[in-house]
């Protein structure tokens, strides 16, 4: 699993996995491997949801108050 993958990609992948599993026409070994991947993907999604902290950056480096300043100001 790619660490840089965002929640939306992971969630879309999970959706595809579930749909393929639900189709029910996969060889068992493949289905089980897919399930394993799905469990891992779901866990990563959950982790992202639980541990998410909004990342904020500004395009104009020194021209504006730094992100830190803005964070503490809020």
């Amino acid at each position: 699993m790619n660490e840089t993958e965002g929640y939306e990609e992971l969630y879309a992948r999970l959706q595809r996995i579930v749909e393929r599993l639900e189709a029910g026409d996969l060889p068992l070994a493949e289905a089980l491997a897919l399930y394993e991947e799905g469990v891992a993907t779901a866990a990563t999604c959950q982790k992202l949801l639980d541990g998410a902290a909004l990342r904020v950056r500004s395009l104009a480096g020194g021209l504006v108050p730094s992100v830190q300043d803005m964070e503490t100001a809020s």
Binding site: L48, L54, S58, V64
Partner: peptide, 25 residues
């Protein structure tokens, strides 16, 4: 970058959708 609008937006995003990355122009 100094307006209340930005803070309002960041507050909403922090509460609803902290998964995002916000790029301020």
């Amino acid at each position: 970058p100094t307006g209340a609008a930005l803070q309002d937006i960041l507050n909403v995003l922090r509460r609803r959708y902290p998964l995002a990355e916000v790029v301020i122009a």
